[in-house]
Design a protein around this nucleic acid. Structure first.
Lengths: 346, 346
DNA sequence: TTGAAAGCGCTAACAG
DNA sequence: CTGTTAGCGCTTTCAA
């Protein structure tokens, strides 16, 4: 592989000049530049990023730590973040915490060791030690999707309470009164806030927000499925379910089908996240959509600013974006809820 | 941040000795080692991976290039690969080709510049130039999920033809005779092979494999949806559909519901991939499951071997794993196909 | 068993 | 405008 010296020799200049034209950091005579550029692409020369990083203390690489990257929501989110990072000229190292403290820590260290310029993390349940290392390493980091108890890092989240409230209100508008909630564990701030939005809205409407209509489970289809079964066994009167995530909502759908109940009619549902697949469930899932692209550009923008100037006013570094209701079939809005399901073949 | 020299000073040794104990590459007196180790974790010292990599020409980092990481199949796959890489002590740089030649090339370069030890790539449609850079850079690389025309790189794929054949045979076993196929574009080898499996099996059974019952679309829900609509409009006689991916199958499900047709009864369906969500669609999707964990461990094992010894026999570097049929409801096996859909609430 | 010193490939003063 | 030189933080001969 051709090196900087080869280029320099071919162009008849010193190695330093090659750097100058490469980085545009120094004035270089037009003629010289041309010769260097010609030499560069004649040799197919590409600067060694490791060496450059060692010298500049910048890797143009971000670390992204997720709790479980296979989850459709996080998959969508990470894809958006990668896009934004790519546009900004950054590569991303991906880490999968798997809700496992040791792994999260392992990835944080892997990122730190490789000197990433910044870290975006969706903190899992047991992330305290990871944060500690992060803080002591003084590497710019921003918390995404959720806040971590007692640690004040810059963050980008959505208005979970507001979104949950809108979802619940929509259910109430449809005449539902016995509305259950399935959400994530209390340690996850976003899950907790969604529960709060549900509860507050119910209370404000003079409707019961009974404890036995609240289920906490992890953000998986399986959990949504079994939580629904348990909820309905405990209280068959339930006529609507607000699910704190689309993945859980898919489990709800499946559970209703298992019980022979019609989603959108017997039991109305509103999910959360606006996952791509939510538009293709049967029936179509009404959900609170998150603004993925906006979240992604905002979080990398914030991180990049932080990298430029690490001593920013912390208070300005908390962004709250908004979700929007996408009314489809499972709430009772759409046509499909009453569409022919036993119609003869076309 | 504490450096190697600080550790050395604290332990009363030379910086070189710190390296010796860190890498265990050199004999070190027990007492000395202890002092060094003590100094290391008193200072919380962590070696700079960039510097180490520059010196050793090893980054312990892999590049993973996917066509679209938000797709449930690739999300599941990348999560499995990350797991395997983590277990092997490797971090992964993730790239999202977005079926865009320029982006793919951009990521290949980003990987190469950062001196990844190896690359795993699922080639998108226009990956030729990317491959070229890959080859000339002589970096170990393996092709995943599909083969790239005319380029002989090590690969890990599944037996697509066999899987598609089994899927089609299963449909035939259910008495279906007018079986359509929706798969990816012909340029994608796996999509093509799945189509072939469908066709061969039909022919072998003396059934028609009509061209007008074949649809090529990209691997998305949307595409599966519209392809189904088109297929059925063209030929309402179709009584089964083999979908070359679960995401497309989800679109098929949605399209059938739109048309008032019952999946598993009016039209039977078998998907491909065994995506986690396939177990939670309504009705449950019968599918050919890919062995994710096995694929992942195999591909990183192969890549790691290649890194150790780049001059291996090429012929041994093609692994074909097998898919397994998971019979559920959409083929007609399960109970849900005939489950009450208009039953009264429990 | 330990230390000194020469790189790894690049950037960034500083001189010229 | 261009070249020299000293690092960046680590590994690795080679001597001691």
């Amino acid at each position: 592989m051709a090196g900087r010296v080869d280029v320099a020799r071919l162009a008849g200049v010193s190695p330093a000049v090659v750097s100058y034209v490469l980085n545009g950091s120094h004035p270089v005579a037009a003629g010289t530049r041309e010769r260097v550029v010609a030499a560069i692409d004649e040799l197919g020369y590409r600067p060694n990023a490791l060496a450059r990083s060692l010298a500049t203390a910048r890797t143009h690489t971000l670390g992204l730590l997720l709790p479980e990257s296979a989850n459709p929501y996080f998959a969508r989110l990470s894809s958006a973040i990668e896009d934004a990072a790519f546009d900004a000229g950054f590569a991303v190292l991906l880490g999968n915490g798997s809700d496992n403290a040791a792994r999260e820590l392992g990835y944080i260290r892997a990122f730190l060791d490789r000197r990433v310029d910044g870290i975006i993390a969706v903190p899992g349940g047991e992330f305290l030690e990871g944060w500690r290392e992060l803080e002591s390493a003084r590497v710019p980091a921003v918390s995404l999707d959720r806040l971590q108890q007692g640690i004040n890092l810059p963050s980008v989240v959505v208005d979970n309470t507001g979104g949950a409230s809108a979802a619940t209100a929509h259910l109430i508008d449809h005449g539902r009164t016995r509305i259950a909630c399935i959400t994530g564990i209390a340690e996850v701030s976003s899950a907790q806030e969604r529960m709060l939005g549900w509860r507050e809205t119910l209370v404000a409407a003079g409707l019961p927000a009974a404890e036995h209509r609240l289920a906490r489970a992890d953000f998986s289809v399986e959990a949504g499925h079994s939580a629904t079964l348990a909820l309905l066994a405990r209280d068959p009167e339930i006529d609507a379910i607000f699910a704190g995530s689309d993945t859980q909502a898919v489990g709800v759908l499946r559970a209703l089908a298992d019980l022979g109940l019609r989603a959108g009619q017997d039991v109305a549902i509103v999910g959360f996240d606006g996952t791509p697949l939510s538009d293709y469930t049967t029936p179509r899932l009404t959900t609170m959509a998150q603004p993925y692209a906006e979240i992604a550009t905002e979080v990398v923008r914030m991180l990049l600013n932080l990298i430029e100037d690490p001593h920013q006013e912390r208070s300005a570094l908390h962004r709250v974006l908004h979700t929007t209701l996408i009314p489809r079939d499972t709430c009772g809005c759409g046509p499909a809820a009453s569409a022919p399901q036993h119609a003869p073949p076309a």
